[in-house]
Design a protein around this nucleic acid. Structure first.
Length: 794
RNA sequence: GCCGAGAUGGCGAAAUUGGCAGACGCAGUAGACUCAAAAUCUGCCGGGAGCAAUCCCAUGAGGGUUCGAGUCCCUCUCUCGGCACCA
């Protein structure tokens, strides 16, 4: 069997598509389809096999949608700011501008080699001043609306990257980039008020087609909790101590209050606290624990009783001791909790450890464990007998009337710490003036370009490298004209990706981030593919910025991403994560050189469900390679007929039906199986008509675009991209003779051949002639489902 | 601990509505071609019993519904992913 020369053919078609601008689109047709994949951060290593997998299936989908008549925009670009590029540049001693340009060049070639049908006229690069001008523009808008603010705060700090991190960047207490354990440091921080959009983002989730796992992860990340803020009087003072609780119904069971080690009252009441030294000691040990350790020790409920400070329970005026305990965190709620050991597992552990007496306020046994389910209330005066919901409502009302409670909603998500003390990012369009304070640049002064500096290493005290670019830093205040300094921190690497899909719509616009008309045309992204690791990072930020831009009238539509799919991980053949250092990684470009891009695409798609993790196999790709050789040699079996042959009519209709369904459902692996079956049958029949061949090539083209383009051109003399996807006739998908399984008592015993839609009497007659041994049994009952099954009960 | 997804041959998987479990591949194996090898082609390929026709077992485990369950219901086990002292 002849092998096809994939090297020459693939290069030919890749050049053809570039020269003919085959995938460049304009806003000039109805039926738009916006296909988006997360744009890559171009690293020096080039794309790895896992990336390739993530890009291939959405790429196949985009090619399919074009055949179905959609005006498909599939753009690509480069998320090129950020630490990986900067660290690489530092290591190699080159300017990050140079390494970024080289990396982009490499990535672009690799995307072309994969056979990507991208609209190269829309290529974007987040490090291009013409691009980040608009990132800075959005920041100024946020600042203008009070959603960007600077404050001294305790934030996550990575000691290795020497930079502030957001909560999203330090999930699990480790730096997202380098894996170092993050520290807590007090610094000047630019915050974006993402919490103002928490409810809007939750509402957005009800309007989009995301996988349930993504919605759940985002809801958990936002962490909305509805409860009440209750105020306890501090005994012998006029002061109050506020706590947040979701279980106000248990207030009669409060055994103590617990406050965070960082709580301001510890310093405020220093003089009244008799054991202040002991408490200061405890706080010091807590501060020595990293955030990670504080999580690790969650079994051991440490804490110290504050001697000399008591609170008064507003429900029953009882005196309540106050503890400092590190299981209470300062950055959630009020930094203080009312502890009800009988009905909260953490409070229960703490009370047992510190021998604190408590009473149950729900009818239940609390001798071994806290009781957290529903039951009638007890020990709660006039609220006895009520269930949780009733007691919550009535006790809240009762305390509201006494003016010591109000409803309160809290979120786990916190404002986005937005500045980094590094070099390779967008400078803030902000000047600090000793007289005027924080002064924003004027819009017409954007972009504020990142200055070229000789030394951009981060330094140990965490000052930004830009602080050393004195010519750039020292400026006159735009308001009062006196000496002032620029903000020297930069934006995080998530800034540029928080709005990039909008720029694809109108990438060369110098007056707006994108024109209204084009944004109205392209509207929501129809399918957004990317990794699951981004759903509580990039996507949260992107949704926030989009809703903000929608609210201020810059973007004319509310939903950024109508549908999301997440690519599963690709594991090495030993089941572990692929990595260069382990030596178990495979370079997709090596595979393309050896087997061709079409073979890699067929195999990647054939591997299984896009959204599930998959294990790489070195030999599996042989199957894809053999299949394409067989496809190449189909031309030897071609007949002159321009119609379906009668014997293949059902086969081809069934194939088109199945393949269309699977493309629409984005279950691409079964398309390859179906097309393999088709090819196997053609080889059995030793012939294929021109019409059948044409339909087959179009069906395979999205997955294997080069070989099918070549065969199509050679056979039909025209371009496959000008074709429409073949359609099927439902009536011709059905065989007239069917093989009907025959069961006895539900177990398969044989098969009879009958005409489609046969009545039961006909089938029974067929049974008698074809399988007489089953017709003579002591038949109790016959279950016959037309075209499905005949089950004889004896 | 909570939430989510999942468990089908040696491996990747398929089974669209509850209706022939294992399609389609990989790997393996026997044969054809060849001086030989590779490539290609043909056959076999879940387990057990049997000369055989055939029979029995089998979709993580156990129960249930049903004429019929990989698919629906209940209980349990394990794997992966996310969150985690959030009051």
């Amino acid at each position: 069997m002849a092998k096809y020369d994939f090297k020459q053919i693939e290069e030919k078609w890749q050049n053809y598509w570039l020269e003919h601008k085959s995938f460049e689109v304009k806003e000039d047709k109805p039926n738009k389809y916006f296909a988006l994949v997360e744009f890559p951060g171009p690293t020096a290593k080039g794309i790895h096999l896992g990336n390739a997998r993530c890009y291939i299936s959405p790429e196949v989908n985009a090619r399919y949608k074009r055949f179905k008549g959609y005006n498909v925009m599939q753009p690509i670009g480069w998320d090129a700011f950020g630490l990986p590029t900067e660290n690489y540049a530092l290591k190699m001693g080159v300017d990050p501008r140079v390494s970024t340009a080289n990396n982009i060049e490499r990535f672009k070639n690799q995307f072309i080699k994969l056979g990507g049908s991208y609209d190269w006229s829309r290529e974007i690069d987040t490090t291009d001043p013409d691009y980040y001008k608009w990132t800075q523009f959005i920041f100024l808008k946020l600042y203008e609306k009070g959603l960007a603010y600077r404050s001294k705060a305790v934030v996550n700090f990575c000691p290795k990257c020497k930079s502030t991190l957001s909560n999203e960047d330090s999930q699990g207490g480790v730096c997202d980039r380098c894996g170092s354990t993050v520290e807590q440091k007090t610094r000047d921080v630019w915050f974006l008020k993402i919490t103002a959009y928490a409810d809007r983002m939750l509402e957005l989730l009800d309007k989009v087609d995301y996988p349930e796992s993504v919605k759940v992860a985002q809801r958990n990340w936002i962490g909305k909790s509805e409860g009440a803020q209750v105020t306890f009087k501090v005994e012998n003072t006029d002061d109050i101590l506020s706590v947040f609780t979701t279980r106000i119904d248990t207030i009669f069971g409060v055994a103590y209050l617990a406050i965070a080690p960082e709580h301001p009252y510890i310093q405020k009441y220093k003089s009244s606290i008799k054991n202040f030294d002991e408490i200061a000691n405890y706080i010091a040990t807590v501060k020595n624990k990293t955030a990670f350790e504080r999580v690790q020790v969650n079994k051991d409920k440490s804490g110290v009783k504050i001697d000399g400070l008591y609170a008064i329970n507003p429900a029953n005026n009882k005196r309540v001791p106050i503890y400092v305990a590190d299981y209470v965190v300062m950055n959630y709620g009020t930094g203080a909790v009312m502890a009800v050991p009988a009905h909260d597992e953490r409070d229960y552990e703490f009370a047992k450890k510190h021998n604190i007496e408590f009473i149950p306020v729900l009818q239940a046994d609390v001798s071994e464990n806290a009781f957290v389910d529903d039951a009638p209330h007890i020990n709660s005066e006039q609220f006895n007998g009520l269930n949780i919901a009733e007691a919550k409502a009535q006790i809240l009302k009762y305390l509201q009337e006494k003016n010591c409670a109000k409803t309160q909603v809290n979120y786990k998500m916190q404002d986005w710490a937005f500045n980094r003390q590094r070099y390779w990012g967008e400078p803030f369009p902000i000047i600090h003036c000793p007289h005027c304070g924080t002064v924003p640049l004027k819009y017409e002064d954007l972009p504020l370009k990142l200055p070229i500096v000789n030394d951009y290493k981060p330094n140990d005290n965490g000052d930004s490298p830009l602080s050393r670019a004195s010519e750039w830093v020292n400026v006159k205040c735009p308001k009062c004209g006196c000496d002032a300094k620029r903000e020297v921190d930069i934006m995080p690497n998530w800034a540029g990706s928080s709005w990039y899909w909008l720029r694809y719509m109108d990438p060369h616009n110098n007056n707006e981030l994108a024109s209204k008309e084009k944004m109205e045309y392209w509207n929501s992204v129809d399918l957004y593919a990317g990794g699951f690791e981004h759903v509580t990072r990039h996507m949260i930020y992107a949704q926030f910025w989009h809703l903000f831009l929608y609210d201020i009238g810059i973007v004319p539509f509310e939903i950024p991403f109508a549908k999301r799919v997440c690519c599963g991980l690709l594991l090495a053949s030993d089941g572990s994560k692929m990595s260069k250092s382990k030596g178990n990684s495979v370079d997709p470009i090596d595979l393309i050189d050896k087997y061709g891009a079409d073979t890699l695409r067929v195999f990647m798609v054939f591997l299984g469900d896009y959204t599930k993790s998959a294990v790489w196999s070195d030999t599996g790709i042989n199957g894809a390679s053999r299949f394409l050789d067989r496809v190449w040699n189909l031309k030897d079996l071609l007949t002159d007929e321009e119609t379906y042959s009668p014997e293949n009519e059902v086969l081809i209709n069934k194939t088109i039906k199945s393949v269309t369904h699977d493309y629409d459902e984005f279950t691409l692996n079964t398309i390859v199986s179906t097309l393999m079956e088709f090819v196997n049958k053609v080889y059995d029949n030793k012939k294929i008509t021109r019409k059948e061949f044409k339909d087959f090539l179009i069906m395979l083209n999205p997955i294997a675009p080069h070989i099918t383009s070549e065969l199509f051109e050679n056979t039909f003399g025209t371009q496959i991209l000008d074709e429409k996807f073949p359609t099927f006739d439902e009536n011709k998908c059905i065989d007239n003779q069917i093989e009907l399984p025959v069961q006895v008592n539900g177990k398969l015993k044989g098969v009879i051949t009958v005409s489609r839609d046969s009545e039961q009497s006909v089938v029974e007659q067929a049974l008698k002639t074809q399988l007489p041994q089953f017709a003579d049994l002591q038949i109790k009952k016959i279950v016959y489902v037309k075209n499905r099954i005949l089950n004889i009960i004896v």
